[in-house]
Design a binder for these strands. Sequence first.
DNA 1: GCCAACGTTGGC
DNA 2: GCCAACGTTGGC
Length: 156
Amino acid sequence: MAFWLFKTEPQTFSIDDLAARGATGECWDGVRNYQARNFLRDNVAIGDGVLIYHSSCRDIGVAGTAEVIRAGYPDPSQFDAESPFYDATATSHSPRWYAVDVRHCRTFAQVLGRAELSAATELSAMQVLRRGNRLSIMPVSAREWHAICGLADTDG
DNA sequence: GCCAACGTTGGC
DNA sequence: GCCAACGTTGGC
C-alpha cells in the first residue's frame, strides 16, 4: 500500500465536495502534467491512501484523506470536446491522460496548514512543502502519512 | 496582485 | 536538440 498527495483548488473541488460523493467517490480527472500522469497510470493502486491538499485558497494545506477505489484508466475528459480538459491529440486507441477514482475517508477538524506541517520534523522533506513545487500528484512516505494523521488526531 | 519557479513550446 | 520566451502554478 502506497500513499499520495493530490492537490485541488477547493473553489473548484474541495474535500467537502468529495465527502458529498460518498461511497461512489469521484473521478480524479484533468491532470495534465506528464510526471503526475505517470503516477496515475503506473503507480496509484486500489486501496492506496490519499492526502487531499487544498491549494490557491485561504486555508492552504491538507484537508483530509481519501482512498483509491479504481486504479489508472484513460481520463474521459480528454475525449470530451466540451470539457476544458479536452485534448484533440488523444484517441481512445492512444490515450494521453489518465485518471483514478477516489472516495472520501476523513475530513480533518482543521486544515493542516503549511506552517504546522513544516514544524513537524518528520515532514521536513515533504515534497509539497518545497518551494516552487508544482506537481499535482506526488508520493508521500508512510512516515509522512502517519505523522500527518497524528497531527490531525491531536488537532481541534 | 505580485512574483518566483517551473513546464512547455517553438525557432533555430 | 538546445534554449529563450512564454504561460501557468501557487504561496505570500
